[in-house]
């Protein structure tokens, strides 16, 4: 399988690469660090940060991808957030919208709550779970080259992709997007749907 000889990736570098020239990409983030990571690239009306409801990022991405089959949808979340609702991979695995990509930034700890180890550091492979749930394109990414290939693929909308990206367990500067959920929802819909958002 994968080897561990590469230096671990920097989370901000990974997210900046994924969101580079985002075109018509719709983004959902899980709570905590991935919210700050996406905000650090630049606040965007078509990035919906799930500030709470731990575990709901992947399913929010699923509902959005099903509703907008012509737009690429990217979920950026953490290993802890995904583990909170691991069964969602089974639900996504039987739907497999072609326009959905889930990227898990895996630092093997709960960075926001004091660095307790997550299950991924003890041998749980999220990519293997995703593959066993029927997501054929599920893999562990360890290099920026892997991330750049992934960034190109998520715009092709050919299949559901699940990427477990191994990152360093370092804290990056806090960059907050707006917190008001109603504002975040309404601006997302206004940007995506135009006048239809208010009907």
């Amino acid at each position: 399988m994968e080897n561990n000889t590469h230096p671990l990736l920097d989370r901000r570098e990974v997210v900046a690469a994924l969101l580079h020239e985002r075109k018509d990409l719709l983004v959902v983030t899980g709570l905590g660090s991935t919210v700050w990571d996406c905000a650090a690239v630049g606040d965007h009306p078509l990035t919906f940060p799930v500030w709470g409801a731990m575990g709901a990022a992947s399913t929010t991405g699923l509902g959005l991808a099903l509703a907008q089959p012509d737009r690429p949808v990217l979920v950026v979340t953490g290993d802890g957030e995904l583990l909170m609702q691991l069964g969602a991979l089974a639900t996504i695995g039987i739907q497999r919208p072609r326009n959905l990509t889930i990227c898990v930034l895996d630092n093997e700890i709960y960075l926001e709550t004091g660095g307790q180890p997550t299950h991924t550091g003890s041998g749980v492979s999220l990519a293997a779970v995703a593959a066993a749930c029927g997501i054929e394109s599920a893999f562990i990414a360890r290099t920026m080259a892997d991330v750049h290939v992934l960034q190109g693929r998520l715009h092709t909308k050919q299949e559901t992709i699940f990427a477990q990206i191994k990152i360093a367990a370092t804290r990056a500067p806090l960059v907050m997007p707006p917190r008001d959920g109603s504002h975040l929802k309404d601006r997302f819909r206004a940007e995506l749907l135009g006048e239809l958002a208010y009907q």
Partner: peptide
């Protein structure tokens, strides 16, 4: 109709939120 079979009810909350973000009632 797009039907989604859930393994637990919590998943449905995310799905219906995402559906509305994408302009669909659920």
């Amino acid at each position: 109709l797009i039907t989604t079979s859930l393994t637990t009810e919590e998943e449905g909350i995310g799905v219906i939120a995402g559906a509305w973000l994408g302009g669909q009632r659920s």
